[in-house]
């Protein structure tokens, strides 16, 4: 019952997010939507995914959109005419081409057709939760039965993520790297005057925030390292840990400000360097496996004691690589987007 309620909430949030005019509220509602999604996924036992969605969907995406809003506009304009007036009395309205009811109907038609095809597809689907569904018996069965033996990782998700499908994860890290470089390409300027987020004077009064941050940040960072290191046993891993570590640095910057351009430059250089380093560690471990005579990313073949030991260390290595890249890209993105210009 509670699941149905949550799903209903999701739909309500989605509709609200799409139909509201104030983009900041929309963004917050999108964050709520993500959080509810996190709860739904936790109830579906997808703990790793929920962890990621909480840090990424509810966290980073919201921050990014707000940063973008602060540098663009908060209100959605145009579309003075609601859908019903478009449909009922189009001749009375002064519409641009894009607003014409015909076009609007076409979009609606496309969406409905897509929905209809999807619903058609559900007819032959196995029931929700069916343990004998093909998806749950072919590959999954073997992973559940043998992955611990073969990789030494008790968390099946991490085992598949880092070992069986480790190459997908390299691709995923490459995607983050691509996004980081793309943002540098699109937004970075040669020289800039930095007055990140909050002015120094105002912050002097926020002694509470500063004190709390000072106490909190080391713990947040420690927790980030824990999440990275503990990914084998429990939910979490390089990605989630990297996000948390990145946020700790962002927290530092928000609380203490960045008085001088020099510090910014240090952060920036460091971000650039680590951005590449993380992926390089990942791809490099793969190359080491090649050199050790195995296949790409075949950690067993690394000359690090027993096969299980090597596999375990290899997985640690790539998780650290992922964590470094994610944290570096987050910091880079933050510095690039959150800067006010004049």
């Amino acid at each position: 019952m509670i699941d149905l309620m949550l799903l209903l909430f999701l739909v309500v949030c989605a509709i609200a997010a799409v139909s509201m005019k104030d983009l900041l509220s929309t963004t917050i509602i999108l964050g709520v939507y993500s959080l509810i999604m996190t709860v739904v996924w936790t109830r579906l036992n997808a703990v790793d995914v929920a962890f990621t969605e909480a840090s990424v969907g509810a966290g980073i995406t919201t921050v990014l959109i707000i940063a973008a809003l602060s540098r663009t506009k908060r209100e959605e304009e145009g579309q003075e005419y609601g859908m019903w007036s478009k449909l009922l009395n189009p001749q009375d309205l002064k519409l641009t081409d894009k607003q014409s009811p015909l076009l609007w109907l076409t979009s609606l038609f496309i969406v409905l057709i897509t929905g209809a095809v999807l619903i058609y597809g559900t007819i032959d689907m196995p029931d929700f939760g069916d343990p004998d569904a093909p998806a749950n018996i072919h590959l999954a069965k073997r992973f559940i039965e043998e992955s611990y033996e073969e990789t030494g990782v008790p968390n099946f998700v991490t085992a598949i993520l880092a070992s069986y499908r480790g190459y997908d994860t390299l691709g995923e890290t490459t995607v983050i790297f691509t996004a980081g470089i793309s943002l540098i390409l699109l937004l970075r300027r040669k020289s800039y005057i930095c007055d990140t987020t909050i002015k120094e004077k105002e912050m002097k009064e926020h002694i509470v925030i500063r004190t709390i941050s000072r106490i909190l940040i080391p713990f947040v960072q420690l927790y980030a390292l824990y999440v990275i290191a503990h990914g084998e046993l429990s939910p979490g891993g390089g990605f989630q840990g990297g996000v948390i570590f990145g946020s700790s640095i962002i927290l530092y910057v928000i609380a203490f400000g960045l008085e001088e351009g020099r510090k910014v430059r240090i952060f920036r250089e460091m971000g650039d360097l680590l951005n590449s380093t993380g992926v390089l560690i990942y791809a490099g471990i793969g190359v080491l496996c090649l050199l050790a005579g195995g296949a790409y990313l075949e950690y067993d073949k690394l000359p690090l004691g027993s096969e299980k030991m090597a596999s375990s260390l290899g997985i640690y290595g790539i998780e650290i690589g992922v964590g470094i890249t994610v944290a570096a890209v987050m910091i880079t993105i933050f510095f690039i987007t959150a800067r006010h210009e004049r």
Partner: peptide
């Protein structure tokens, strides 16, 4: 529960946030 879709979606979430970041830029 079946771990494979979880793994796939972990990847897909990351792809999605990367796309969002580029779009916002």
């Amino acid at each position: 529960d079946n771990p494979i879709p979880h793994v796939l979606i972990l990847t897909a979430i990351v792809v999605s946030v990367s796309t969002t970041a580029v779009a916002l830029a």
